[in-house]
């Protein structure tokens, strides 16, 4: 079974997301939450990197954290799924373990 990785830091500030993507296995899920949601937007300079990662892992972003930061879920990059807390719970339940990249 796959692991759910959670990341809560902006990649513009810290290396958590980079480290997470460097360790996630094919088929794992990555959830961007809290300050990490900025990484989900299609318009950022990091979008190509995320698109590349999305070839092997499934990337999700927490919608309530996007909205709180004034980021429109419609602007999220293709291939990244928007979930709410229910979706977060489902992702955790469907994975074999949850790894928080703090």
């Amino acid at each position: 079974m796959s692991t759910l990785h959670t990341v809560n830091k902006s990649p513009f500030e810290r290396a958590n997301l980079q480290s997470c993507l460097g360790h996630a296995q094919d088929g794992d899920c990555v959830l961007l939450m809290e300050d990490a949601v900025v990484a989900a937007m299609a318009a950022t300079a990091l979008a190509p990197k995320l698109a590349d990662a999305a070839q092997s892992v499934k990337i999700f972003v927490l919608g309530p954290d996007l909205k709180a930061r004034g980021l429109d879920p419609a602007g999220v990059a293709d291939g990244i799924g928007v979930v709410d807390y229910d979706g977060f719970v489902d992702l955790a339940a469907e994975s074999s373990a949850v790894h928080a990249w703090l």
Binding site: S2, T3, G22, H23, A24, Q25, S96, V98, H99, A100
Partner: peptide, 12 residues
């Protein structure tokens, strides 16, 4: 990365 994927509980 492979080792991490084999774990039941990851504490950070």
């Amino acid at each position: 990365a492979k080792l991490m994927g084999e774990m039941d509980v990851v504490m950070t």
